[in-house]
């Protein structure tokens, strides 16, 4: 151990380099394997039906055509209507944005109260909310349908927003509570002595501190709500269906020749927004963390 000679360490260096190469090779293979389906989806969506029938699955398209994308967006048939994904895509947008914002705001307020304005039973309520995170969707379908019926929201987009907000509060509360619980209680005391009230402290001191956790919550909630199928299919009717349901209908209700290229284009369109949110906000998230000036 004490007299490690030069040649020996040289040998170790070579071993080290070889190991590195192997590692990168393996990681590269895994990445290729993982990206394969996406590759097939993108190339297939750019081919014509003719080419799909005659060519290989993994081949590059000979003639790139965006016809399938156009059809998927505005012409594909879901059952009897042939309007493509477009109306349903907007349904999803006007459903997901308010649902994400409302559930994030309520979660922030809940977390603020549970961590900084402790009251008798605060921990019990928090535990119950946590429990809510682990209730399977299927269990609440029937009671929720009844609820929405009673509220007159059955089959409407506000109804779906309501469902997603309720279901999201457990998670958003958990995120914000765990973030706020690390903030010293003296901060609230100092603000109280300064004369600030409940909402003033929340608005002026806690929300500005919360950027990283807001981004995490928004990514999480948006992904959940945009990708949701079960609630979407259960609590919507013709005209209010979200994009996931419409995608299913396009893929499953074609007659005659299966238009793989349209299916693939539709699937990519339906997945783009979550990808977009992740790329934009995820980048912001990392910047927020590395700025490092958040903590006092």
């Amino acid at each position: 151990m004490t007299d490690l000679g030069f040649p020996q360490s040289q040998g170790r260096n070579w071993g080290h380099v070889a190991l590195r190469c192997l590692l990168f090779l393996l990681l590269g293979l895994f990445a290729l394997f993982y990206l394969m389906p996406l590759f097939v989806m993108v190339t297939t969506s750019l081919k014509s039906l003719e080419e799909i029938r005659t060519g290989s699955l993994v081949a590059f398209p000979r003639d790139v055509t965006f016809e399938a994308w156009r059809t998927a967006w505005s012409g594909a048939c879901t059952g009897i209507q042939c309007e493509g994904l477009r109306p349903y895509f907007w349904n999803s947008v006007i459903l997901a944005i308010p649902a994400v914002l409302i559930s994030t705001l309520i979660g922030a307020l809940n977390g603020y109260v549970i961590s900084q304005w402790k009251f008798r039973g605060a921990n019990l309520i928090f535990s119950l909310m946590l429990f809510g995170c682990f209730i399977p969707f299927q269990v609440v379908l029937l009671p929720m349908a009844r609820m929405l019926g009673l509220m007159g929201l059955a089959g409407t987009i506000p109804g779906l927003i309501f469902v997603h907000v309720i279901y999201g509060i457990g998670f958003t509360t958990l995120f914000f509570r765990n973030y706020y619980v690390t903030i010293p209680a003296e901060l609230v005391k100092a603000a109280k002595v300064d004369g600030a009230g409940f909402f003033r402290i929340f608005w002026s001191i806690f929300l500005p501190l919360s950027l990283p956790i807001i981004v995490v919550t928004v990514i999480w909630q948006f992904t959940q709500i945009w990708n949701d199928f079960l609630f979407g299919v259960s609590f919507s009717q013709a005209g209010t269906q979200p994009v996931t349901v419409a995608l299913n209908n396009i893929v499953n209700s074609t007659t005659g020749v299966k238009e793989y290229n349209v299916d693939m284009a539709a699937a990519i369109i339906a997945a783009l927004p979550t990808l977009f949110v992740y790329v934009v906000a995820g980048n912001y998230f990392i910047r927020g963390l590395t700025a490092g000036s958040v903590k006092g």
Partner: peptide, 16 residues
């Protein structure tokens, strides 16, 4: 806020 006091805390409790 109405007690006409000011307070300095152990952790300073500055608004970060």
């Amino acid at each position: 806020k109405d007690r006409d006091i000011a307070m300095v805390f152990q952790s300073y409790a500055l608004y970060p």
